[in-house]
């Protein structure tokens, strides 16, 4: 168990380049344990790249990421990952329960097969996201929101200390959005750290207590109340955000 008060995630000088064009540039990011953080920025700002580079899924040009003080190789069991929904083939022949059980494969290790205990854990996670009735359903029959919740359940069974979620709110229905928010709060209450790639500025202050504004570089990072300012948003989005009106963000000219 990690000690309270230490940094859940410390990213130091992380740089990733595609074809020698920087996708993210010299990122320094410190996330305290128990933070519920949104990563926000315009398209092409490198939000997903940041997560993938931190998790070693794409090669880094420079920099390091420490999870509770340990490099990724030693901290895999601390990390939970929710990839973008569109990254997999939803016509794959498998059931919802099966997908959720996949979250336990890493812990099971080589050769061992999931058994009754794993099944119980997966069912519990499905209940948490409100998909218990869908456990036996084939995944191609799910709606977009249900697919997202399936992925969330898969991350929940990982029982990780720090979660990375790539656009979980993208194109989901209201029920799913509420369910995701509930789960985020629940995780937050249990002291877990959650980083969410997010694209809807208006809900940021309501959902998240920490915020990182990203546009290739980190523009600002910290508690939402301090970071979510018009000045910072303009720096991030380049003048297209014009005013903060009672917490509402208004856009100029679409």
């Amino acid at each position: 168990m990690p000690e309270p008060g230490e940094l859940a995630l410390a990213i130091d000088d992380l740089t990733v380049a595609y074809d020698q064009k920087p996708a993210i540039w010299d990122i320094d990011l410190e996330v305290p344990q128990g933070a519920l953080m949104a990563i926000v920025g315009p398209n092409g700002a490198g939000k997903s790249t940041l997560i993938k580079a931190a998790l070693n899924l794409i090669p880094r040009a420079a920099g390091s990421a420490l999870f509770h003080g340990k490099p990724y190789e030693a901290a895999r069991h601390l990390v939970g990952y929710v990839p973008q929904r569109g990254s997999v083939d939803w016509d794959f022949p498998t059931s919802v329960l099966d997908v959720v059980t996949m979250g336990l494969y890493g812990k099971l290790g080589w050769l061992r097969r999931p058994g009754r205990r794993e099944r119980a854990k997966a069912l519990a996670a499905l209940e948490q996201v409100g998909l218990l009735d869908y456990a036996g359903r084939q995944i191609s029959q799910l709606s977009g929101g249900q697919q997202q919740r399936t992925f969330l359940a898969r991350a929940l069974v990982q029982d990780a200390q720090i979660y990375f979620m790539d656009e979980p709110f993208a194109a989901v229905d209201a029920t799913t959005e509420a369910a995701i928010v509930n789960i985020l709060r629940e995780l937050n209450k249990r002291g877990r750290t959650v980083l969410v790639v997010h694209h809807d500025l208006q809900t940021v202050p309501e959902y998240f207590d920490w915020l990182t504004l990203l546009n290739v570089e980190v523009v600002a990072s910290g508690p939402t109340c301090r970071v979510f300012t018009l000045d910072n948003l303009q720096k991030t989005y380049g003048g297209r955000v014009t005013s903060l009106h009672g917490g509402q963000v208004l856009a100029a000219g679409g």
Binding site: D200, Q202, G238, V249, A251
Partner: peptide, 16 residues
């Protein structure tokens, strides 16, 4: 150069 090259949001950031 870097920021100019990247600072062209494709969609309106305030619209979900």
């Amino acid at each position: 150069q870097l920021l100019v090259a990247h600072n062209i949001p494709d969609i309106d950031p305030t619209q979900p």
